[in-house]
């Protein structure tokens, strides 16, 4: 039972991550390989605040969103100057640098040893303790963020994002400030990803840099692509699919050392096949064509 709840909570965390990345990648068409960096910064901000200042959960989550949002500006601004795969490489660089800071700024982050002993959150008197409590919390957050994303995606602002993805010149010629929109969506996406990080930190009660690597970023982008870029429901489906399916490998009785590698190979094969035969994913409307 615990195991099942754990899987559901993981799916919830990946829904937060993939839906927020979908706004950046699927709506605005900016291929970003830096989402695990935002995820990680959110987790570290919350963990450090909780451990060092003993500050309450809600304050921490707000701080994490604000701080990660500022980082979002830093990643979004290059998108005004560089495009396509060059931009993706810039976000990749940002991801590596962030990981390296988490791993090496030992006096702040405790480096590879990680930060243990993050207390359980208390929200307005509700002690979030058991797996069930966490599942309820994550469900609430998913509900808020998914509705937020759906409203945003269907608003005139969302329409501008899609038109930026399709044709920046046309969008500018119609009087839209594309620079602002691109940076804004990065701030929003980064802020949402940090929420996932905060929850993760409180749920596991221990974080270390290995949870926020390039591989993690690639995993999140795989969810978005396979679920379908430009469709919020696709990301939800993709998150559930990509979290559950490898768990099946476990039941095939594979030794855990091999299972980890097989999982990776499996994700890689899935990503390649998806791009080859179904570039729009399950439900997507956008496939990075020329």
């Amino acid at each position: 039972m615990e195991y099942l709840l754990h899987i559901l909570i993981l799916i919830g965390i990946y829904i937060l991550l993939s839906v927020s990345l979908n706004l950046i990648v699927g709506y605005a068409g900016l291929l970003s390989i830096a989402h695990a960096a935002f995820y990680g910064v959110g987790a570290y901000v919350a963990a450090l605040l909780a451990l060092k200042l003993n500050s309450p959960f809600l304050a921490n989550i707000v701080c994490a969103i604000l701080l990660t949002g500022m980082l979002g500006v830093l990643v979004g601004v290059p998108s005004l100057r560089i495009k396509d795969d060059y931009f993706a490489i810039a976000t990749f660089a940002f991801q590596i640098i962030t990981f390296s800071i988490m791993n090496n700024w030992v006096s702040l982050t405790n480096g590879p040893m990680g930060l243990p002993g993050i207390p359980t959150p208390v929200i307005l008197g509700w002690q979030v303790n058991s797996h069930t409590d966490f599942l309820i919390l994550i469900f609430l957050l998913c509900f808020i963020i998914v509705s937020f994303s759906l409203i945003l995606g269907h608003s005139p602002f969302g329409r501008i994002l899609k038109s930026i993805r399709e044709d920046e010149i046309f969008t500018q010629a119609l009087g839209k400030n594309i620079a602002f929109c691109k940076v804004a969506i990065f701030v929003i996406g980064a802020g949402m990803a940090s929420v996932a990080g905060v929850i993760y930190a409180y749920y596991i009660s221990f974080i270390d840099p290995t949870s926020f690597t390039v591989m993690e970023s690639i995993f999140i982008i795989s969810i978005v692509i396979i679920g379908g870029a430009g469709n919020i429901w696709g990301s939800i489906l993709g998150a559930a699919f990509l979290v559950i399916l490898p768990e099946a490998l476990r039941f095939l009785g594979m030794p855990s050392a091999i299972a980890a590698n097989m999982r990776q190979i499996f994700y890689g094969v899935l990503l390649v096949l998806c791009m080859l035969y179904c570039p729009q994913g399950f439900l997507g409307e956008y496939s990075f064509e020329k």
């Binding site: 396509d84 690639i218 094969v269 899935l270 791009m275 990075f288 064509e289 020329k290």
Partner: peptide, 12 residues
């Protein structure tokens, strides 16, 4: 496929 797709495939 644009360069972004090729990049993603190469990551896979």
């Amino acid at each position: 496929a644009g360069p972004s797709v090729l990049l993603l495939v190469s990551i896979g």
